[in-house]
Amino acid sequence: MRESHWEKNLFDLIRRTSTDLPMDVEAALRRALRMERLGGRPRWVLSTILRNVELARKKDAPLCQDTGTLRFYFRVPVGFDTNALVAVVRAAVSKATRCGYLRQNTVDPVFGCSFPTNIAHGSPVFDFQQGGRKSVDVRLVMNGGGCENVGGQYALPDCDLAAGRNLEGARRCILDSVWKAQGQGCAPGVLGVCIGGDRVTGHEHAKEQFLRKIGDSSSIRAVARLESRMMKEIGQMGIGPMGLGGRSTVLGVKIGSLSCLPASFFVSVSHMCWAFRRRGMVLGPEGGVHRWLY
């Protein structure tokens, strides 16, 4: 593995993810802006957000100062050396931190100390899967702390919400989660939801929904219907951009499902802010960029 080649391209992935909001997200923000009344507060908030998006791209600066948890999803050929990939990603993350594309954003919860390069136990986060292809598919999602804090997990049935173990129960959990979050998760963003799984896989799968494009819908018809119903109903709550009132509270609701134990029925809800930083690239076996994703 020619490490410098890989490191350079992975550094570029981090740089671009931090500074350049994907087109599908930006387009959704522009649609949200058009939905809000001219001269109103929500419209001011959204136009401020969009100006920030343009400025960050132009100045090559982080969109948001909270550069978030760095979650790398790798799809590699069978037998590929993933340890070598971990090493080059770490080098690229260190460099991106030194260059100011990432904040010194990693602290030790026991000792209170900060990790100056963002390399630590549990940072960055990796997900590896082997597949039949010859190329390496890598996607990076940056998930800030504000929206991470408002996520949650429900174990159904839930008496307070009158939520049973079905899609209607999941609907109630999602509405509740959005109401509780108000503007704290920097609305309007995207919800990643997993119905089923366990305590860990539920949240993991909820976050994997962030790899989907804003405009798509679930391949399961009943779930797709729930996704579009949630969009409409969440809009009706009037929480709006940054929770200051308005129609656009989410840009997308992405729901996945995993098998679960007969005794468990979890609904895991992960919130992503409007600064939905997700980029990806397909790399050849030598680390050259074949194409960008998103």
């Binding site: 908030v45 401020t48 957000i49 100006r51 920030n52 400025l55 960050a56 100045k59 600066a61 982080p62 969109l63 948001c64 100062q65 909270d66 800030g144 504000g146 503007g183 920097c186 940054m242 200051l244 802010c273 409007w274 600064a275």
Partner: peptide, 13 residues
């Protein structure tokens, strides 16, 4: 005063 969350470059400006 609520500043716009995430509008970090604009605010830095």
């Amino acid at each position: 005063v609520q500043a716009i969350g995430g509008a970090a470059v604009l605010l830095a400006g």
